[in-house]
Every structure is written in structure tokens, then in C-alpha cells.
Nucleic acid binder design. Structure first.
Lengths: 218, 218
DNA sequence: CCTACCGATCGGTAGG
DNA sequence: CCTACCGATCGGTAGG
């Protein structure tokens, strides 16, 4: 699935700030973000990176493998960043605030990566799909762990932990659909406000009998 | 943009429960939902509806026009349903609860429509895009109005109305990404829980000084 | 509603 | 990293 090269040149030549593979990944992520994976063509990617199409295949196995590599790296990086920021935070409320803020702020430098990680899963099949789904589940588990701890300690009052996790992740994952740099709020402000929204929902005073009682048939 | 026929046959023939146009729209929505708009081919749609590709063009102007028709109808129907259910509810908390429940329950019969209304906007350009964006904005305005009223009456404690609206809409709009019929919870239970999540976030006790104070740099 | 067919474009390969 | 090229498939049209 991945391209391994014999790294002969890694002693010298700090010139290219990105390896050729990485540059292609980055340009491809932007292209997939802008056009969608299906609508994006390798011809256009070739132009962006200054190569003919066949030359791209020296750096990838297929279009699908390229997408898979981008998504796996993005999700791994996000999970790592989350673990790092959560390492020295112990109160569940603080942990959730940090988790949401970190997820949101991840979009500062990785908007395209984060967006297609969410959108283009459907274009993957087989092992590629499994690899991305596994990483998605890892991310969800991180949030689920926080919700579980908060519920056990009594800090969170959620009637259903699974739905709470999905709701919080929905708010984070949808950010690329509406956030654009240069808007009314910067990303740090958005991160604070969304963290506050999530924590408020999780910690709101609730009558214990909410569950099971159907309120309104609407 | 729309196909108008001289409705000569509407007096007789109650036989076809769906008009040919509508049947094509419905099959197309399912196909676009399953494969994505770009990856879905008119060949496959033709097979699903029992027609050769050229015959489809007796019922549509283009693939893009077909998608536009599906999205506009779905968003109009959702907005109509929301307005109907909200007509006799006046308390902002109740209105928000009904709005979220109605949005969620709309997925019961229109999962594919709702999903692609959210996902496939990017495949549209020009007037088609504007027409869908206008309807999206109408939907957002419905929720924004409820948030505004609740904030003014003091029922809601949100530090930023715009972000609150986006967060609530995110939770609703992402439902097709994870909800599958036959799961642990039925849609009515999910609707109750998500409405509770949203209302809890909007009404949570908050110190007035939250805004502007940056808590953690994380 | 069909047969027959179009130009364009796609991801990918051969061979160097 | 390139030129040259492949078969497949695409949305869509002509003409009936």
C-alpha cells in the first residue's frame, strides 16, 4: 500500500522542504478538496505538481492508494495531536474542552486533509476502506473515553453516551463545510465557542427521568 | 430548469403511483446516495428505471438538472415540514426541540434525499448552485430565528448565536453519515436525544463573562 | 421510447 | 521522468 524507497539521499540535500511523495500528497489533497475525489483528474494533479501523468505513478500505486495515504496520515496526525494535548489533562470537562479545541484547531493547517478525510471515505473500498475506518474508530474512541469518564464521575449528565459522542464529533467534523479563514471569527474563537457548546450540552442539569419518557410526538 | 408537461392524463390512470419524472428522481436519489453523484452513471440509472440512457432525456435536461431538482424538492419539503410543525409552538425551547426532532425524523422517509442535499452541493455550479444555496439559507434562517428569539427572551444563554446555529445544524445534517435503520436506537429515540443535546447546549447555565476570556491555549 | 453513435476524458500501461 | 498509446466509460445527440 505504501511506497518505500531506499533512502540514499537523506544525508545530503535538505533542499526540497517536502519529499516528492509528500508534495504530491499535499497538492492532491487540495485538489480533492476543491473538486472532489471522483471529479479530480490525474491530468490536473500532474499540472499542479509539474509532471506528466505517467510520472505520477513513480510516486503512487493508483489514485485510490494516493487518497488512502492522505487520509490515513491525516487521521493519524489528528489522533497523535489529540493524545499529546490530552496527556496532562485529567478532569473530564477540561479534557473534552481540549479535545474539541484541538480537533477544531487541527483545521488551521490541515483544512483540506480534514475535509476529505470526512467526505471521501465513500470512494474507498476493500482494504483501503478498512484502514481509514479503523482510524476513524480510533478517533471516536478517544472522545468516547472522555464521555465515559465524565459520565462515571458525574461531571457529565448525558442520557446516552453513544449519541453524545456522535453529536460532539458531528460538530467538529462538519467544520470544513462552513468555516472559511478570514471570516467574522478566527479559528481560535470558533474552537472556544464549539468547546463551550459541547461541554454545555454534556454538563447541563438534567432531570434523571428524561430517558424513556417521550415528550412530544411532534 | 424544470420539466413541465401538459397534464392530459391526470384525470384518468391512477395506476402509476409515481409519475415517471418522480420515479426517476427517486431512483436517482438512491443511486447518488449509494455511489456519489460523480461516480453514478446514467447507464446505471437507466437500468434501475428500466430505460435506455437516451430515453432518460425525455424526463430531464441533464444529469445536473436532475440532481438540482432532487435537492430543491428535498430542501423545500423539509422547510415546509418544519414550518408546519412549528406553527403552533411558541416557547423557544419547545420550538428548538420540535425543529431538531422534525429535521431528524425527516430522515425516516428521505434518508437519501437529505444525505445528498448535504453532500452533493459541490457538484453544482451556476444557477443550480444558487438555487440550492438559497434553500439552504432558508433552512438556516428558520433555526437562526429560534435561536434569536430564545436569546432575547433569556431562555437561551448562547455566547454566539451564529455558532450555536451552525452547531445545531451540524448535528442534524450529519445524521445520514452514521444513522442506519435497525440499529440500537430507532429514529424517534435518536430525535429525542439530539433535541435534548441541542437544547441542553443552548440553555446551559453560563457565566456571562465566558466570552473574550481565552481559557486554554492548548 | 429506441438504435446507433459522438467526442471527450478517464485511470493506467508499455517501453524506454 | 518522458512519449505514445490503450480500452473503457462517460454525458449527451441525431434521427426516427
Amino acid at each position: 500500500m505504501s511506497k518505500k524507497m531506499t533512502d540514499q539521499q537523506d544525508a545530503a540535500a535538505p533542499q526540497p522542504p517536502l519529499s516528492r511523495e509528500r508534495e504530491i500528497e499535499q497538492r492532491a489533497a487540495e485538489l480533492f478538496y476543491r473538486r472532489g475525489y471522483d471529479a479530480a483528474s490525474l491530468r490536473e494533479l500532474g499540472k499542479l505538481v509539474g509532471m506528466e501523468v505517467p510520472s505520477l505513478y513513480n510516486h503512487m500505486d493508483s489514485k485510490q492508494e494516493l487518497l488512502t495515504r492522505i487520509l490515513c496520515r491525516a487521521l493519524d496526525d489528528l489522533a497523535d495531536t489529540l493524545r499529546t494535548h490530552l496527556a496532562d489533562v485529567f478532569d473530564p470537562v477540561d479534557r473534552m474542552r481540549v479535545a474539541v479545541r484541538t480537533y477544531v484547531l487541527f483545521h488551521e493547517e490541515r483544512l483540506a486533509d480534514a475535509s476529505i478525510s470526512d467526505t471521501e471515505l465513500r470512494s474507498l473500498t476493500g482494504e483501503s476502506r478498512s484502514a481509514v475506518l479503523k482510524r476513524r474508530a480510533t478517533l471516536a474512541d478517544l472522545f468516547a473515553g472522555i464521555v465515559r469518564d465524565g459520565a462515571r464521575s458525574g461531571a457529565f449528565t448525558v442520557p446516552d453516551e453513544g449519541i453524545a459522542v456522535l453529536a460532539v464529533l458531528s460538530v467538529c467534523a462538519r467544520l470544513p463545510m462552513w468555516y472559511r479563514p478570514g471570516g467574522r471569527l478566527n479559528l481560535d474563537q470558533v474552537a472556544d465557542l464549539l468547546a463551550d457548546f459541547a461541554v454545555s450540552a454534556l454538563t447541563a442539569p438534567r432531570t434523571a427521568a428524561l430517558n424513556g419518557t417521550r415528550k412530544k410526538r411532534s
